[in-house]
């Protein structure tokens, strides 16, 4: 039986910029930052209160994982905001929204009371979008 998810990938346009976004803006912690040779880096971060879920910030670059055309297509799709990678949770959505906005995070949907919960949507620095919800009280 599967018990846990411990790694998930988010494809990013630039790992340095993604590091700044996820660590300095979202407040995530760096778990692993290892050089894998020239121009290659294994970079994972974890949400502050979920140290066992590593989010791998995967560079979309021509190389072993992507062929040239696939990398270009993938970069284009990410930049266009095609992919939504998950749902984050916070204690207080209005406070978190105001804080992230103050730090320059772009929201595509302000906090809204929906029938399924209280939700906002934001984009990372590459264009990937995430839902941000408030923990049920």
């Amino acid at each position: 039986m599967i018990t846990k998810l411990n790694h998930v990938s988010v494809f990013v346009l630039d790992q340095d910029s993604a590091y700044d976004f996820y660590v300095n803006k979202l407040g995530f912690k760096v778990h692993t930052d290892a050089s894998m040779g020239p121009g290659m880096r294994w970079l994972t971060v974890t949400p502050p209160e979920q140290p066992d879920l590593e989010i791998s910030l995967m560079a979309i670059a021509e190389g072993m994982m992507f062929k040239k055309e696939s990398a270009a297509a993938m970069r284009d799709l990410v930049a266009k905001g095609t992919f939504g990678f998950g749902v984050f949770e916070c204690n207080d959505l209005l406070a978190t929204y105001e804080e992230l906005k103050a730090k320059g995070v772009v929201f595509t949907k302000a906090p809204t009371k929906e029938f399924y919960g209280f939700e906002a949507l934001f984009k990372d620095d590459s264009g990937n979008w995430f839902s941000l919800g408030e923990k049920a009280k």
Partner: peptide, 24 residues
């Protein structure tokens, strides 16, 4: 992490990127 970076990368990702074939 510097000496043996592959210890910190799940093998499926290492294989996908070809890192496990790199002699270094």
């Amino acid at each position: 992490m510097k000496r043996v970076p592959l210890k910190f990368v799940p093998n499926c990702f290492a294989e996908n990127n070809g890192w496990n074939k790199e002699p270094q």
